[in-house]
Design a protein around this nucleic acid. Sequence first.
DNA 1: ACCTACCTGGCC
DNA 2: GGCCAGGTAGGT
Length: 265
Amino acid sequence: MVRDLRATLVGRRIDSVEVLRSDVLRVPAPDVLPAILVGQRVAGVDRRGKFIMVELDSADHLVVHLGMTGHLLVTAAEAPLPKHTHLRAGLDDGRELRFDDTRRFGRVAYGSPSALQDARVLPRLGLEPLAAGFSQEAFDSVMRRTTRTVKAALLDQAGVAGLGNIYIDEACFVARVRPTRRSHKLTRAERVRLRVAIQTVLLNAIANRGSSVDDYRDIWNAQGSNQEALQVYGRGGEPCLVCGTVLRRTVVAGRTTVYCPHCQR
DNA sequence: ACCTACCTGGCC
DNA sequence: GGCCAGGTAGGT
């Protein structure tokens, strides 16, 4: 999404802003946001963990988290407004950037990254799994310092940023590690496999343009294809694609979790 | 380190 | 009507 947004938005000027549902906007107040944004051009688009950061020429950022059902869409300005569109920004090319979110677990905020941290919109985020800093040493230190399950440790965005329920189960399968294992008890070899698996799973998902299991759509409202490549997520009770053993479905760290009891130890 | 609430919609 | 869902803040 960030790559597509960058190619589409950088250099565009915001000509209008409408906040249709103010409770998704954390900061600033919904009535002042339009005046702040209108006239600004998009300077860049980046990502930190699951947060999409649209930088404007003021150097402040429009920050978006999609939650479970959020969408950031680029549409024609005259395209019909779906029921759960909460914010729209008209661009100087006749298109619109829209934030849409059925369950409203997502959120939008605008400000400097440090002010957004102070406002507790941006939490403390850990290692970026696709950046150079994701070394074995750094990952080891994250995993060794907690007694929680591997699943819980990886769900915590302060350790490794950006992993969610789907990709954690997939990475654990590729690494042949049960998500129920205690994080600090993994062997060095298991942590190496897990680190590599996290990167492999994420890079594949990106290459496949995302996992449209349910609601995920790209900025053109198109589905990805990575849901077809998932090996365990959503497959509880079905045979393991490697060994044929029935995949086990349980709840770990409060989340539905699927693993192969034979391949994963 | 865990548990619940926050929302809407789809399915049984 | 009840249960479940890609996430996370805030409480205990």
